[in-house]
């Protein structure tokens, strides 16, 4: 396959997100401007100007009309996808790390980093249908144990009844999204040993995949929080993705960014590694980035995926025909 290279960012990529139809691809980077691209040919549709810090995360509503972004400038912003105009700004007192719309787009979960004397927290905001009615108040704020540790990702559980969070303390927690009660923590012995960098849900939400700096990715059952599978690799995992079409998971990573300039790029293992979801066996690797892969996303049709690297490039891969017939 010949990947499409998209150079819209000046700084390392942080997050990639496809909309539900799979025709738009949203990209966030440490430069302050998220971009939106046409996912078929890689043409840039627009940019969302307004943040004043690295943008860590984004999510798009089911109807592709609203975009929410979380940034290190201590705000999360709602955008009109079509025009690129800011609709609303949620201000916090610390950088926001992760954002996600709930099923139905009526709520959003936003996590904030520990900052100064503030500890990390998970906020739930109500998203109004009409931007004029939008308010900034949180309907729920969760204070997490070990608040000096960042929460790298928080997502909604089934039917928006729970919130799943993971972060630097390497523990996955499930919270009640109504009461804010901590429902479950993963078993210490089967969990990750280092910072969890990424978390992605399966298309049906029944299980989710976490990637960690301990050079592994783990597949968990959403309801029971039991470990299903473990995928081991040679380098820290920064990003994970799950194919909606085949039983494949993709791990992206590479050595720590701090070591990149001191080693040869061939030694860095900057490749997106495909694993069989069930057999936990490596299928192959897709190379090309000149730095660690920070973001991965699968097109909802499962026929293409994109990766964003520390090198500032997004590489959009449309799979060759033979990918779909790979046998182990």
């Amino acid at each position: 396959m010949r990947p499409i290279l998209m150079k819209g960012h000046e700084r390392p990529l942080t997050f990639l997100k496809y909309n539900r139809d799979g025709d738009l691809l949203f990209s966030c980077a440490k430069d302050h401007t998220p971009n939106v691209w046409f996912a078929d040919n890689g043409e840039r549709l627009g940019t969302y100007r307004g943040h004043n810090g690295a943008v860590w995360c984004c999510d798009v509503s089911r109807d592709s009309s609203r975009l929410i972004t979380g940034s290190a400038d201590q705000s999360a912003k709602l955008w009109d996808v079509q025009s690129g105009q800011q609709v609303f700004t949620f201000n916090f007192d610390s950088p926001t790390r992760s954002v996600e719309f709930s099923v139905g787009d009526k709520l959003a979960v936003i996590t904030t980093d520990p900052f100064m004397e503030l500890t990390s927290a998970i906020h739930v905001k109500r998203i109004a249908g009409d931007p004029a009615d939008q308010t900034a108040e949180s309907i729920l704020t969760l204070k997490v144990p070990q608040g000096r540790m960042k929460i790298n990702r928080a997502v909604w559980g089934p039917l928006n009844s729970t919130i799943i969070s993971a972060g630097e303390d390497a523990i996955i927690r499930i919270w009640d999204s109504e009461t804010g009660k901590l429902l479950q923590e993963n078993q210490k012995e089967e969990g990750h040993t280092k910072t969890i960098t990424s978390l992605v849900k399966s298309p049906d939400g029944s299980h989710f995949l976490t990637g960690s700096l301990d050079k592994s990715a783990k597949l968990w059952d959403t309801r029971t929080l039991t470990l299903i599978k473990t995928y081991r690799t040679e380098s820290p995992v920064n990003a994970v993705a799950m194919s909606p079409l085949l039983n494949h998971v993709v791990l992206g990573g590479g050595q720590d960014a701090i070591n990149v300039t001191t080693t040869d790029h061939r030694a860095g293992k900057f490749e997106a590694k495909f694993y069989d979801k069930i057999l936990q066996e490596e299928i192959g690797g897709v190379k090309g980035h000149f730095g660690p892969i920070n973001a991965l996303a699968f097109n909802p049709d499962g026929k293409s995926f994109s990766s964003g690297g520390e090198d500032g490039y997004i590489r959009l891969h449309h799979f060759d025909h033979d990918y779909f017939n790979i046998k182990i």
Binding site: R2, I4, G285, G288, H317, Y323
Partner: peptide, 19 residues
Amino acid sequence: SRTLVSTEEIQLERPKAPG
């Protein structure tokens, strides 16, 4: 252009020969 198609053909590199 912000978008260009890679001149390099990228393969899914198998860790071992299939089969």
